[in-house]
Design a protein around this nucleic acid. Sequence first.
DNA 1: GATGAATGAGTATTCATTCAT
DNA 2: AATGAATGAATACTCATTCAT
Lengths: 204, 204, 204, 204
Amino acid sequence: MSSSEKPRGGTRSPTLTRARLLESGQALFAEKGLHKITTHDIAAHAGVAAGTFYNHFPDKSALFREITNEALSELTRRLDEASPSGAARRDTVRPQAEALISFAEDHREWIRILFSRESGAAAVEADVLLELANRIAETRRQSIATGEMPAEIDADVLAQALVGMWTRVVTWWAEDPNRLPRDRVIGTLTRIQLQGSHPRPEGA
Amino acid sequence: MSSSEKPRGGTRSPTLTRARLLESGQALFAEKGLHKITTHDIAAHAGVAAGTFYNHFPDKSALFREITNEALSELTRRLDEASPSGAARRDTVRPQAEALISFAEDHREWIRILFSRESGAAAVEADVLLELANRIAETRRQSIATGEMPAEIDADVLAQALVGMWTRVVTWWAEDPNRLPRDRVIGTLTRIQLQGSHPRPEGA
Amino acid sequence: MSSSEKPRGGTRSPTLTRARLLESGQALFAEKGLHKITTHDIAAHAGVAAGTFYNHFPDKSALFREITNEALSELTRRLDEASPSGAARRDTVRPQAEALISFAEDHREWIRILFSRESGAAAVEADVLLELANRIAETRRQSIATGEMPAEIDADVLAQALVGMWTRVVTWWAEDPNRLPRDRVIGTLTRIQLQGSHPRPEGA
Amino acid sequence: MSSSEKPRGGTRSPTLTRARLLESGQALFAEKGLHKITTHDIAAHAGVAAGTFYNHFPDKSALFREITNEALSELTRRLDEASPSGAARRDTVRPQAEALISFAEDHREWIRILFSRESGAAAVEADVLLELANRIAETRRQSIATGEMPAEIDADVLAQALVGMWTRVVTWWAEDPNRLPRDRVIGTLTRIQLQGSHPRPEGA
DNA sequence: GATGAATGAGTATTCATTCAT
DNA sequence: AATGAATGAATACTCATTCAT
C-alpha cells in the first residue's frame, strides 16, 4: 500500500484515532463549549471522517463526559495528594490552593471546560465539585464543633462559598495567567477564609 | 362560523400578552436555560400562537435580554441601596449580603437565569457582576492600603473570589430556601472574609 | 373631537384611504417588486393600520392587479391615441414610440412595475403586451402581404421582437432619463425596424 | 430491521445525487422560478431527503447560481464561437441568431431560467446580457461612425433594443418551438435591424 | 475500523390574512 | 371604516446520527 493513499479501513491505530478525537474535543470544547461544537467539527479537527466519531464514542455527550471525567479525576487526584487525610487541618488550605493553581497551569483547557459558564459541564462537574466542597466543609465543620470557628458559620454555605470562590478565581486567572504571579493568587486565596476569629457583629 | 373558534384579531390586551410572554420566558429560561427553550415553547406556555411571539419581541434573544436586563437593574438597584456611597466600609458587607439574599427570595427565577451555569446569560451578567466585584474590591483595596488588610491580598483576586462565592451560594440557596434560614446564609457570608487579622504563615 | 387624536373609526374619507393605499403600493412595488413588499409595508407607507388594507382590497394581488390594470389601460389609451386606426401605416411607428416614451416620462413607477423583471407583473402584462404586439404585427403583416416588406419576415416573430425591444429600451431609459434625451431614444427606436428594403444576403 | 428501510449511509453515488439535484433544480426553476420552488421541492423531486440538499449546496441560491452560471457560460461560448473576433461585421448577426436559437433548442429550460420574467435571474443575467449587448452595440457604433448607419441611431439604445428583442423572441419561441421553423425565426431576427438605409423622416 | 453521503426531526422566523373592538 | 393583535402555515437551514461500502 502506498503511503500516500487516503487511509481507508483500519489504517492508523484505533487507539491513536480515539486519542485524537479526545484531544480535538478538548481543544474545541474549551474554546466554544459543548453546544457550539458539532461532531463534524471534532472529526474534522481530528482529521477523520464524520462517521469515525461514532466508532469511538456512542454520542457527543459521551466524549464530553469522558473529557470531563478525566479532568475531574486528575483534579481530584491532585487535591487528594495535597491534603492527605492525616494532615493537620490548618495545613490543608494552602496546599489545595496550590494544587488547584498548578492544575490550572497544566490544563487550561480543562479549566475552561469544567468551570466556565456555558461550557456544557454544569451537570457533570456538580458532583465532583460538591464532593470537593464537602470535603472542605468537613474540615470546617470540625473547627466549628471545636469552637475554633464561630458557630454562626454554616458548613454547607461555607462549602458552596469556597467552591464558588475557587472556581471563579481559577477560571479568571487561567484566562490569562499573566495577570498575576501564581503565588499572589495562592496567597490571596489562602487568606480569604475564616481565621477562627470571632468578629464583632458589624453594627457593634 | 361557530363561536368556539380560536380568537382571531386583536382580542386580548397586547400588554397582557407581552407580560405573559415575559413571564413564560422567565419561567422557562429559569428551568432550562436559553438554549433549550424554543420560541414555540414560550408562546405555547403563554397560551398564544407561535407567531405572536414576534409581535412583541424581535427574536428570542431580545426577550432574554429584556429579562436579564430587568433582573440586573433590579439587583443593582438593591445593592446600591444597601451600600450608600457614604457608608463606612465595615458596614458594607452585611447589608449587601442581605440585599442579595432578599433579591433571591423575591426572584428565584432571576437568580437561576442570571447565575446558574448554562443559563445563557454568561455574557450578559458579566459586566454587572464585574462592576459589583470591583466595587467590593475597591473597599478592600483601601483596607489593604491602610494596612488594615494584609498586603498579600490582591484586590482583583479578592473581587473575583467574592463574586464567585456570592453567586454560587445564592444560587445554591435559591434552589431550595428551606435548606437553611436566610439569616444563617447571611451570617456565614458576612463572616467569610478577611477580618484584618494577619494570620501566621501556614507552616508556623 | 380634537384633531390631534389618533384617527379611529371612519375618520378620513375612505376614498382617500383607498387612494393612498394605491399610491403606496405603486411606489413600493416599483421600488422592490410584488414579492418583496408586504401588506404591512403598504399599510405603513399609507399611514394606516395593517387591517385597513383588507377593507379596500381582498388581497395583495388584487391591489397589484389594480395598479397594473390602471397602468396598462393608460398605456393602451395613449398608444391607441397615437395610432388612430385610419392612419397610414408608415406614420404609425414614430407616434407610438413617442407615446411610449411620454408614458415613461409621466409614469416611471408604472414602467418599473410593468416591465422590469421580477416585478411580479409577468402574467398580468402578458395579454396587453401581446395585444400591442399583435397590433404592431398586423401593420407589418399587411406590409408583408403587399410585398412592401420581405416575405422572410414572420409577423409573429416581428411582434415579439418589437415588444421585447420597446419594453427593454423604455425600462432601461426610465431608470435614468438623464442618460439620453428622449428624442434620441425615439429616433433610434423609430429606425430600428425593417424599412422595406430587401437586404442583400449576408455573405454578399 | 427490515431491508425495506430507507437507505441510510453513503448508499448512492454523491456525484449522481448532486447531478440529480442540479437537474431537479433546473426543471423546477424553469417551471416556476426561483422563489416559488423550495429546497424541499428540489430534494423531493430528486428523490432525496431535505437535508441532503445541503450536503451538496450551501443554500438555494447557490444551486440557482450554479445553474445560471453554467447556462450563461454555455451561451457565451456559443455566441463567441458564432462571431470570431476577426469576422467581418456584417457576417456577425446571422451566426449569432443561429447560435441563440440552437442554444434554445438544446436547452429550453435554461432559456426559461435565464430570460423569462420572474425567474429570479434578473441580477444574474444582467452582466452577461449587457456584455452581449455591448458587443453588438460596438459593431453598430463603428457602422455609425463610418456613416454606414445613420447618426440618429444611438448605440446604447440599439444595444438594449437588440437584447430585448432577442431575449423576448427566443423565450417566446422556446415555449413552443412548433410555432415556427427555426429558420423562420432566424430569418426574421436577422432582418430586423438597421440596414444602413437612411429613412426619410416619418412625416415627410 | 474508517468512510462520508444520506437522513429527518428540529427551530427560528416571516407574513398574508382575520376579526373583535 | 379603521384598528392592530393574533394567527399559523410555510420555509430555509442545522446537525446528531446511521450504515452501506
